[in-house]
Amino acid sequence: MGIVTPGFRGRRSEEAAELPPGQYLTSDFPVLSAGPTPQVDLDTWTFTVTTEGYEQTTWTWEDLLALPQEHPTVDLHCVTRWSKLGTTWTGVSLDVLLEDVETAADFVLVHSYGGYTTNLPLEDLLDGQAWIVHELEGDPLPSAHGGPARLLVPHLYLWKSAKWVSGLDLLTEDEPGFWEQLGYHEYGDPWREQRYSGD
């Protein structure tokens, strides 16, 4: 237990038990990003997977919408400490997008319009754990929340769910992304409270 601050009682919520350590519940949807919101045009939008052998597969917006769509309902945990429960998204599972991609890579560096990157193990994108999503609660994804399309990896802190996603590099060696180079945790499991490097 930490050092007790006299007089502090705090506000306990019923839901606190369901939340990862150090998180609190919000009904808003706050925004965390390092810069302004990039405007991405659907006519020129693409999503590209590049393997370790530089083989590329590219989907246009039409291609993405033509793939089987899923509607995951998931909890979100942001490293700035808010959690939001039960958000519903529409998008394409990474299992579908990576199905025909030949790779021996273990790691992924995710790229976004605007230059953002984040890294994670490839296995965290597979087996129904991750999606490229383009709708939130049935509406087109607002640009402030990563529209037209973002990665959604809800079992990791939200900075791993790159907004304005433009592609994935499949890598045989791990490469730190934007926040990971700035001292945030390389994996980011909210249940193990992996906020900062070394946690």
Partner: peptide, 14 residues
């Protein structure tokens, strides 16, 4: 900043 109450409940803010 982490605040802890007497019963061990604690919360953090930036």
């Amino acid at each position: 900043v982490r605040l802890t109450a007497e019963d061990g409940y604690s919360t953090q803010r930036s």
